[in-house]
């Protein structure tokens, strides 16, 4: 029982999530999305055969990485496992969430299925809680057209506060714009102002109390609001990860260990 989790414990992930392993790329981009949104089509279309697959450290979840070059810069694309949410209720969700939080990619592309916006927006809103460097890729627009669904992309971008790019990755439509926008976010040329979900007042009150203290403790390493919410939710995996991160930092401060993170 629980063998896979036991024998390949969560500790294994975070150690390998530092950015250093991607040092040969100029920018690291994460690709997130619900299952069945054509996320892998986007991944394949961007990276071509320039990719390799393996497992996430200590997990039997497939990890695919690829590379592409845009305007002389090397972009490394990490294909996160398909997930409906980031509540970490399955191994895929946990891997995706941990990477977004602890891997700290330079930009995150969230792929949406244009025929199923409402469900997909759930994931988008959760990603925006962790990181503001997000590009929304509304994929399968051709299929939405066939199903007579119309989407106002400008209104969507305004609602979310991050750029939106419509694509039909199967036919290569919209990918140039996507690459351009990703580059803008990663280099900081494009600034985003995500509209984060506000919860009911009791929760917001508690978050307001915790957030400054978390900022003081961990600095800008992780999104303090998000960590506050996870602490309130008693999310053991996040608590353990933060603890591990702090222990290392303690070690560095007292000169006991030479490991520098973040």
């Amino acid at each position: 029982m629980g063998l896979i989790n036991q024998s390949c414990g969560i500790g294994a992930i975070k150690e390998n999530f530092g950015k250093s392993q991607f040092s040969n790329a100029d920018h690291v981009i994460a690709l997130a999305g619900n299952p069945n949104t054509g996320k892998s089509t986007v991944f394949n279309a961007l990276t071509g055969l320039n990719q390799h697959t393996g497992n996430w450290p200590g997990k039997t979840v497939l990890r695919a990485e690829g590379r592409y070059i845009h305007q002389g810069l090397i972009f490394k694309l990490i294909d996160l496992p398909g997930a409906y949410s980031l509540m970490a209720n399955s191994m895929e969700e946990q891997v995706a969430r941990d990477y977004l939080c602890f891997g700290r990619p330079d930009a995150t592309v969230v792929v949406l299925d244009a025929t199923c916006m409402e469900r997909n927006l759930n994931l988008v809103l959760q990603v925006l809680e962790i990181t503001s460097r997000v590009v929304i890729c509304v994929n399968l627009v051709d299929e939405a057209e066939r199903k007579k669904i119309q989407i106002d992309y400008h209104a969507l971008a305004a609602e979310l506060g991050v750029p939106v790019v419509p694509t039909a990755a199967r036919d290569g439509v919209g990918l140039d714009k996507l690459v351009e926008t990703v580059s803008g976010i990663a280099t900081g040329r494009i600034e985003t102002k995500p509209n984060v979900v506000r919860y009911k007042e009791e929760i917001e009150v508690a978050v307001r109390k915790l957030e400054p203290k978390i900022k003081k403790l961990i600095g800008e390493a992780f999104n303090a609001r998000w960590v506050a919410l996870r602490l309130l939710d008693k999310d053991q995996t996040v608590i353990a990860a933060v603890e591990q991160w702090l222990t290392r930092k303690d070690g560095v401060l007292t000169g006991m260990e030479g490991v520098v993170l973040a």
Partner: peptide, 11 residues
């Protein structure tokens, strides 16, 4: 438990 969370996740 987990079943509840997964159902919520699915909307």
């Amino acid at each position: 438990g987990i079943t509840r969370r997964r159902m919520l996740d699915l909307g």
